[in-house]
Design a protein around this nucleic acid. Sequence first.
DNA 1: GCAAAAACAGCAAGAACTTGCAAAAACCTA
DNA 2: TAGGTTTTTGCAAGTTCTTGCTGTTTTTGC
Lengths: 249, 249
Amino acid sequence: MLKEERHKYILDQVHLHHRILLNDLSDALNVSIDTIRRDVKELHHEKKLKKVHGGATSFGFMTFSKDDGNIYLQSKKIQIAEKTVSLLSEGQVILMSGGTTNMEVAKLIPKKLSLTVFTPSLHVAMALLDHKDVEVIFLGGKLLHDAKFAVGGTVVNALSQLRVDLCILGTGYLDANHGLTEFDWEVIQVKKAMIRASKKTIILSVSDKLHSVQKYKTCDLTAVHTLVTELDPQDPLLDAFREFDLKLV
Amino acid sequence: MLKEERHKYILDQVHLHHRILLNDLSDALNVSIDTIRRDVKELHHEKKLKKVHGGATSFGFMTFSKDDGNIYLQSKKIQIAEKTVSLLSEGQVILMSGGTTNMEVAKLIPKKLSLTVFTPSLHVAMALLDHKDVEVIFLGGKLLHDAKFAVGGTVVNALSQLRVDLCILGTGYLDANHGLTEFDWEVIQVKKAMIRASKKTIILSVSDKLHSVQKYKTCDLTAVHTLVTELDPQDPLLDAFREFDLKLV
DNA sequence: GCAAAAACAGCAAGAACTTGCAAAAACCTA
DNA sequence: TAGGTTTTTGCAAGTTCTTGCTGTTTTTGC
């Protein structure tokens, strides 16, 4: 394995997990701990990550931003959010799930665009309330401590009485064969209900999450109308998704 | 777990709750109390927090309150919150309205106290979600942009199906003759429903808001069981309220 | 002033880090 | 392509850091 490849892998891992142990890297890359140490030291000097005793963390790890203050991933998410916002139009009634990408969308909605948004995500709701012209309706229910996301019967019930224009699903894992998957069963139920309640479904996914599969399935790709990533729609990484009847943005 | 991670967690907790017990940290992070002690001592030397006997506090909890950066008011609110928290007991099911005072209550709830809390306030919900032993149910509805508070039929409806132990109403204006008053009609409707849904009602009020009257009325003082202020219960400022059958704290 | 809780100091085991070195691989240059 | 140079990598020895435990001292609440 080339040094460059190792460096890329290390950075990816750090960006994805915000922290990483040198031992794990050594195992994963099959090189001695010393080599990893040298790699990380180098990346530290290049200011690409921060070396700490026993491992490394991404910059911004120490910030108090609730989301992941990860510049790398963050910029991808902002790109996605910008594309997504351009798909919205005046007066629409939409549904938004949670996740940091969706939060970026919420932040980037133009101040003068009037919308009605239903969401079960505390973070998204909070971000939306900055927009005076957006009416925000929170779908109440039992809140998950980590995701700050409402789940359960009341949410699904409320959703069953809606019929909105658009549904924007953030986070989640995407794969051409297995569709959209998640690791939390309760979240799945809500997302399913969201899809049912909408005429169109838009999926947001940073490329890191493409081609990965989790335990539970939300839906097949046939239920999705648009896939937004930070990649160019022509990018070969997206080839696997072209066989489906969905718009790549 | 990396030392760096512990430090981040500790700082997050301190900033969120103003104060934190070393024991709670030790439990939460699964390391010995000595390690926590060393961590906190280190952060203290870095001036990131202030170490006190038994725990740590944030340097300027005042700087963190976006709303009223008023140190005096803030510390009054924290006093009220401390008194209020002491009124809670294990396993209770309670309702909490919004407001900054109620948010302080949410932050100060002991880590190991298990409760079920219903609230229509985004801020309170957010603060509560930091307590793993508190089940948080958000009362969904249309959100008010400024108050970040859910109002409307769905909230009132959901409340009409509840019968809980306790209801903690923050903010609002209080006067012996006119009772509890507010300036927002929609909020009134929700608060009324909250009072109806509870066996007991606790009102929190900083002394500044005593003896002032607003446009709409939430309830008479006869509906209130406990009034918590930052004042000593004997304080003459509270004399006007003694004729009612309520507990002064 | 007493008992309990918290803080402190010192110790020891283990983990992580540093340094120097030598073998192997990659990279010139003639 | 051969020979020399540079870079990369793994190993080993010694050092420092981290952490939990001990017993002792200080603080706190009653």
